[in-house]
Design a protein around this nucleic acid. Structure first.
Length: 271
DNA sequence: AAAAGCCCCTGGATGC
DNA sequence: TGCATCCAGGGGCTTT
């Protein structure tokens, strides 16, 4: 469900409220993507120092280690002083003195994993290969172009891979490529400098705008307070196969790349 | 090293 | 209404 903007909106919606809380209990439901890693008891008594985001991971710094959370495809977080009893899709509760943080995830592609520290093997494995954060100054246009020049795969798949730049999921990849007028199947290495720079700007534009809107185009997205996004961002191409391009009115096309759907305008995105 | 496939899981939409 | 099929916002792992 969540791409970078949704994860960041989620983070912002509870980070300040959970800061300085003490962990009272950890409750695990059905298995998520990976085992939690330690006895839940380990966290009891620890203090929540803050919540960061890296790519689509949320990182809760606790006094005794790092709690990694991922929303997968269908996950969402809720934070409230009191929550109803866990339902069939609630698989992780962090009960604290200031409220309970709950991970709800029907498909269970999400994760809650304990890493004793920043350099713990689990954290290394999950975070070590991640690309640059697109909304920070680290996302340098020229370096982006240079990284793309090394890659023979299609630009869409390079964006999704997350080892060059993080946070661009299946929706925003199509949207950013549309904005930059680049055909998703184009080999990344073939992008000229100006076109790579246009894509760099498009990624920032698309993600930044979605973030400002509080969570974008996603159908079911809501933050940890249960507030939904503003739904003001109509997708230009995503999920619009066969419908007229909003710019040129040609029919939006769909194709599969790596078992994921890609949408583009064959006229606006010629190569 | 990089790319391509596979797979984890459930629910909703669609078609017969 | 019932059942089968397909599809979904992610990404690590294994195989080429």
């Amino acid at each position: 469900m969540p791409e970078l903007p949704e994860v960041e909106v989620t983070r912002q919606s509870f980070a300040d409220q959970i800061a300085n809380a003490q962990v009272l209990a950890v409750k695990l439901g059905k298995p998520l993507r990976w085992p939690f890693g330690v006895e839940p008891q380990t966290l009891v008594g620890q203090t929540v120092l803050g919540v960061r985001r890296r790519g689509k991971y949320l990182l809760a710094d606790l006094s005794g280690g790092l709690l990694l959370l991922h929303l997968g495809m269908s996950g969402s977080l809720q934070f409230a002083q009191a929550l109803p009893p866990a339902g069939k899709h609630d698989h992780f509760d962090l009960v604290t003195t200031l409220g309970t943080l709950r991970l709800h995830d029907p498909r269970r592609f999400g994760a809650a994993v304990w890493a004793s520290g920043q350099d713990a093997p689990v954290a290394q494995k999950l975070l070590g290969g991640l690309g640059v954060e697109p909304l920070t100054d680290d996302f340098d246009a020229l370096l982006f172009w240079q990284a793309l020049r090394q890659r023979k795969a299609s630009i869409k798949q390079v964006l999704l891979a997350g080892d060059v730049v993080v946070g661009v999921g299946n929706i925003y990849a199509s949207e950013a490529l549309f904005l930059a007028r680049i055909r998703p199947t184009t080999q990344a290495r073939l992008l000229s400098k100006p076109r790579a720079l246009a894509l760099h700007a498009a990624i920032r534009e698309v993600l930044g705008r979605a973030l400002e809107q509080g969570g974008s185009t996603l159908r079911n997205f809501s933050n940890a307070q249960g507030e939904s996004g503003h739904f003001q961002l109509a997708a230009m191409v995503y999920d619009r196969a066969g419908q007229p391009c909003r710019v040129c009115h040609a029919k939006v096309a769909m194709l599969r790349q790596g078992q994921r759907s890609t949408f583009y305008c064959p006229v606006c995105q010629k190569r």
